[in-house]
Design a protein around this nucleic acid. Structure first.
Lengths: 163, 163
DNA sequence: CAGTATTGTTGTTCAGTATAACAAATAAGG
DNA sequence: CCTTATTTGTTATACTGAACAACAATACTG
């Protein structure tokens, strides 16, 4: 609270001190703050790896879910990803316009759409995933190590049970 | 890719099967996805703990930084938190209107604002942090364990060096 | 059948984030 | 000193993500 760090003599010895690292205070112990910073860093690295693919994390996740569960209904996909079904519409619209995914008639329910990847979408997903592995995930494991990454995934899963 | 899970006989034995857990596919191995889910869960839990305080995570972080670095210049605070200085204005405006923080003249620079907490702001920060500890962080450690929490913090810090 | 719930969709709002532009002030360099 | 460039706080603006209400079409329930 006090600590009057030498403020007189503004002439000399004040050059590089301008970059005091700044104390995080209470934030230092707060998990949410660290989580957010880490998440931003990882997402940014994701975007760098996906440069040229024009594929945001949310779009990638949609393609991945459809690929793993072909024919799944639209509402199930959005629900699985925690995306509001109203907001999911435009997201899917774009993927459909880019011929990566398609809405098909759901057997036995004329309200629902069954979602599938197009052949182009499957190729696109595979290629973008390859880029992610060789660039993004490689950088991640460079700072984490493979064992720590798996450990981290497990810890994160525990946190997700909070909600 | 194939796996034709029994689709005929739509009458019986189709009741609870509707909730197939859904395969995460490529997402399962993607750190960014897990990070985002965990971060959302933790932030949501934060908001629950702060109910009644009307204090969002970003606002809390500003108060915490100012408390730990009283007199710090406005631009340094926003920079330390990764908040655009243009967006920081409204954020600080609200804290000032609520008499939690204040802008003061910065000694030796008439452009800058030196930021301080008001006495009310200090009390408010302490009380909200107490609530965080007794509710939010308690729930976090309930699912993580104290040792794992510290481990997780270290792993997250490594990730932050990515950016 | 009548009433209710679900699905996809549109419209709207709000918070978060990014950029450009500006005035006041400071710093740098001749 | 004077001129020019940079910094600081601010406003305005735009775009994204996420939330909600409402609606038509369809499905489900009693």
């Amino acid at each position: 609270m006090a600590a009057p760090r030498r403020k007189t003599t503004p002439a000399t010895a004040e050059v590089a001190d301008e970059k005091q690292p700044i104390d995080l205070g209470l934030l230092d112990n707060l998990l949410g703050y660290r989580l957010r910073r880490a998440q931003l860093a990882v997402f940014q690295d994701f975007l760098i790896a996906m440069k040229g693919f024009e594929l945001r994390p949310a779009q990638f996740s949609v393609l991945a879910i459809i690929a793993a569960n072909p024919g799944l209904k639209q509402s199930r996909v959005s629900e699985a990803l925690g995306i509001n079904r109203a907001n999911f519409v435009a997201l899917l619209d774009e993927l459909e316009q880019r011929k990566l995914a398609r809405r098909a008639a759901a057997p036995g329910d004329r309200r629902s759409n069954a979602l599938y990847l197009t052949p182009k979408g499957e190729g696109f997903l595979k290629e973008s995933y390859r880029h992610l592995l060789t660039q993004h995930e490689k950088r991640v494991e460079a700072v984490l190590g493979s064992a720590d990454k798996q450990l981290l995934l497990n810890l994160l899963d525990k946190l997700t049970t909070l909600a």
